[in-house]
Simulated assay, not measured.
Amino acid sequence: MTQSCVDTFVAFTKFYSDLNTEQLKRAHRFFYRVAFKQELSVMLFRIDIFALFNRMVKGPEPLDRTSPIFW
């Protein structure tokens, strides 16, 4: 796992409002694998990633809470 792989998925996920459910699940699985399966959560401890996840959940343009991605 390299930081450039994480950067690529962060750039991909920034367009969360344009992504469909399957694409969002793919991004979620990637971050899950980095943090828990490979035990490299330190690669995700970045302010830009935390800010992105916060925007996705709380807004100003959050994901729809009725979307299957929240289940």
Rank of each mutant, 00 (worst) to 15 (best):
P68E: 06
T21C: 13
F31M: 06
V6W: 07
S41V: 01
A35Y: 08
F36G: 02
V34M: 02
F30C: 06
K14G: 01
R29S: 14
Y16T: 02
S41T: 08
T2S: 13
E22G: 09
D64F: 02
K14P: 02
N54I: 01
A35I: 00
F36Y: 15
Y16A: 08
L19T: 10
W71T: 06
A11L: 09
F30T: 07
S17W: 10
F15L: 12
F12P: 00
D48S: 13
D7Q: 12
N20A: 06
M43W: 06
F12T: 14
T13R: 01
L19K: 08
L24C: 06
Q23E: 11
V57K: 13
V57C: 12
R29I: 11
G59W: 02
Y32N: 11
W71A: 00
L44P: 04
L24G: 03
D7N: 15
F12H: 09
S41R: 15
T8I: 07
H28M: 11
S41K: 15
F45W: 08
L44K: 07
V42F: 13
R33K: 09
V57A: 11
R46Y: 07
G59Q: 10
V42T: 02
W71R: 14
S4F: 05
D18Q: 14
K14R: 10
A35K: 08
M1K: 03
Y32A: 05
G59A: 09
S17Q: 11
K14T: 03
F9S: 00
R55E: 07
V10H: 13
Q23P: 02
Q38L: 12
K14E: 15
F15T: 15
V10W: 15
I47H: 10
F50V: 05
Q3Y: 07
F45A: 15
T8E: 12
S4Q: 11
K58F: 12
A27C: 08
F31A: 03
M1N: 10
L24I: 15
D7R: 10
N20E: 14
L19M: 08
A27H: 03
